[in-house]
């Protein structure tokens, strides 16, 4: 019953109405849903597993797409390794989405934690955290992520790096993205901490961490969720850019960015499909996610309109 109730409430809410009122947003939601579904059903609908070298045959390399003189077994053509591009795009999209979601998750946790501590505890700890945030904010996130990735490469061997590439890239982008959350949370906490419910909780004698996480945190989550949606698109772009630069995911487990990098080398010699199909997928995904994020920001925050 509670479930049906909450459905009914959702169907009657402002957000749902503003969603229905904007055809652009509905289109964006449909595209996002389609791409996400296709990506997570990849093992079922792909023609091969592109991560398994045993499936690749070099004699299949550089086949053109179906309607450009190719054949059914390679609907979008194949790349220089003989990988079916259609399957590679499905798996690559999945990887890009997973990295994007993981980055949003970890940077959010880190940013919320540090922001809460900075805002609630204050003092020297606050000063240290915020100075680090200020310095980091001077630089674009991509530069920070590149730097962290480069340092990791300086420490561990190339082979080892290839094994843990996904973790390295998630960690480096997350460490570049936490600042925005921390600053937002800190700002809201500074307002919330002086309110009566916090004082009441303190008078009861609750421990500080409990007040922070159980009482203050839920009241500062609104803006955090908006930032998270907008950052999803940004995280996907950053991962794709790093992979395109050749410092992200290796060509043995290609994300969309890696596929584009591989294809970029063949653009001048006429094999356009290796770049263009992953590129269009990435463009559609990012555009749709960004449109959704913008809509959510406006819907949750009528003041900004």
């Amino acid at each position: 019953m509670a479930l049906i109730d909450s459905f009914r409430r959702a169907a009657d809410s402002d957000i749902w109405h503003s969603f229905r009122a904007s055809p652009m947003t509905m289109a964006a939601a449909a595209v996002t849903l389609f791409i996400v579904l296709a990506a997570f059903l990849a093992p079922l609908i792909a023609l091969q597993n592109p991560f398994d070298p045993a499936n690749l045959n070099l004699s299949d390399a550089m086949r053109p797409p179906m309607f450009f003189g190719g054949e059914w077994s390679f609907p979008m053509g194949s790349d220089d390794q003989g990988r079916d591009l259609y399957s590679a795009i499905l798996y690559g999209t999945r990887l890009s989405l997973e990295v994007g979601l993981a980055v949003v998750f970890f940077s959010m946790i880190l940013g919320i934690g540090l922001g809460l501590v900075a805002g609630y505890v204050g003092g020297t700890l606050d000063a240290i955290i915020m100075r680090i945030a200020d310095v980091q904010l001077t630089f674009p996130a991509i530069l920070i992520a590149l730097l962290i990735d480069g340092v990791v490469r300086g420490v561990i061997s190339v082979k080892r790096h290839e094994e843990i590439a996904v973790f390295v890239i998630v960690a480096s982008i997350s460490l570049a993205f936490w600042v925005q959350y921390a600053r937002t949370v800190r700002g809201s906490v500074m307002v919330e901490r002086n309110k009566e419910y916090v004082q009441a909780a303190r008078v009861i004698g609750l421990p500080r961490w409990l007040i922070m996480f159980r009482h203050v945190l839920p009241n500062v989550m609104g803006p955090v969720l908006v930032i998270a949606t907008i950052n999803l698109g940004l995280a996907i772009i950053t991962e794709a850019t790093l992979s395109f630069l050749g410092v992200g995911l290796p060509s043995t487990q290609p994300s969309l960015g890696t596929l584009i990098r591989i294809g970029n080398e063949y653009l001048n010699s006429g094999e356009w499909w290796i770049t263009i199909f992953p590129g269009l997928t990435l463009a559609a995904l990012v555009l749709a996610v960004n449109l959704l994020g913008d809509w959510l920001r406006d819907a949750l925050n009528p003041k900004l309109r």
């Binding site: 794709a240 463009a283 960004n290």
Partner: peptide
């Protein structure tokens, strides 16, 4: 402009190369 803001830089560069350098062959890539 919304598209310009959403698309990653490298993708725009690749599209420009494809159009002006590979197809039209008027500018170096």
């Amino acid at each position: 402009s919304l598209i310009g803001i959403s698309l990653p830089t490298f993708l725009i560069g690749i599209m420009l190369i494809l159009f002006f350098a590979v197809i039209l062959n008027v500018l170096p890539s």
